[in-house]
Amino acid sequence: MNRWLLWVPLVLFGIFFAVVAAGLIRPKDNIIESKMIGKPIPEFVLPAAIEQRPALSQADLATGKPQLLNIFASWCVPCIAEAPQLLELERAGVQINGIASRDTPQDIANFLNRWGNPYVRIGTDMRSIVQLELGSSGVPETFVIDGNGKIVHQHVGDIRKEDVPALLEILESAG
């Protein structure tokens, strides 16, 4: 048997060790990023989620001005956590569009009454159709859309206080 062949198992184990050690050290976020970033927002039309706000379609998102598209739900706990940040963004003059995921009008209305309503339009996505079109894998998620209706950024999970300036900056540069 060739001498060098005897070292192959050790080398293979070394490779395994490197891969696993790197995997162990690397922070695990398990975020499945949408591949739609950089592409125009897909066509969709969603009915209005509540009476007080108009419905939402992709045409409403290409108005020449950058906007946020926020996917939320009344049954989602992190959505409550990010509500103050959305209000803060609204106060900063950002136009925020909402997509209510798998929700009922009554629950949505209650949720907005309680935690504030930063949205200009809210579409209701009862069967995750638009969510799938956007490449979104959960709630809450926030997309930044530029004036031409192109998706420029995706924020997965709730928006924390420290995320707000970054989002404002991305909106700024998208304009």
């Binding site: 398990n30 499945i32 798998r102 069967r127 159709i129 799938l132 894998s137 959960g138």
Partner: peptide, 19 residues
């Protein structure tokens, strides 16, 4: 998408149902 290690055929997650 939500359950990380299951096919949508095997998942009880609502979003898997939508898929």
């Amino acid at each position: 998408l939500k359950c990380q290690s299951q096919s949508i055929a095997d998942s009880d997650a609502p979003m898997a149902g939508d898929m």
